[in-house]
């Protein structure tokens, strides 16, 4: 079936199987591979994107459910060459190592601060519970989110 999604401001239209997951639509049809797949149980958050401005695990949603919606992925977060404050904070705090969790983590963190701009450490930790990272021990991720929060 035909699915049309505005991804990072560009309309992407494709004929896909009804069972196609949004994450696969983004990776394969839109050819945006920044959004990663890390699990098959909706547990890891590596696939986190924004749908109409809200964080969604894109492996939990069918492409067809996003038909006509606005999607933002990690590729659409920066303003041209200027990193989003969250991207900048991740860089400054060394909040990424292998980077595999990073796109999802950044998207989740942006949404977390949208909802609660003054989130404290405990709230950041709770808020990111659904985004797993194997490399950083979360220490610098939490630091980056708090820093970005302070900056906003």
């Amino acid at each position: 079936m035909q699915v049309s999604i505005t991804i990072n401001g560009n309309l992407v239209s494709h004929d896909v199987e009804p069972r196609t997951l949004l994450v696969h639509f983004i990776r394969e049809q839109a050819e945006l591979t920044g959004t990663n797949v890390g699990c098959d149980s909706s547990s890891c958050g590596a696939c986190t994107i924004h749908v109409n401005g809200e964080a969604v695990k894109s492996c939990t949603m069918l492409a067809v459910q996003a038909d006509g919606q606005e999607v933002t992925t990690i590729e659409g977060l920066a303003d041209g060459d200027t990193l989003h404050p969250m991207q900048q904070a991740f860089h400054e705090c060394h909040a990424l190592q292998c980077g595999y969790c990073t796109p999802g983590m950044v998207m989740a963190a942006v949404s977390l601060l949208d909802e609660k701009p003054d989130a404290n450490e405990a709230e950041v930790r709770e808020g990111l519970e659904g985004n797993l990272c194997r490399c950083t021990g979360y220490h610098n991720i939490v630091k980056a989110v708090l820093q970005a929060g302070g900056a906003q």
Partner: peptide
């Protein structure tokens, strides 16, 4: 600060 960060942060690198 890490030199390698940019592509990870902007396009999710190339796995």
């Amino acid at each position: 600060l890490r030199r390698e960060d940019e592509s990870f942060l902007t396009v999710g690198a190339t796995y």
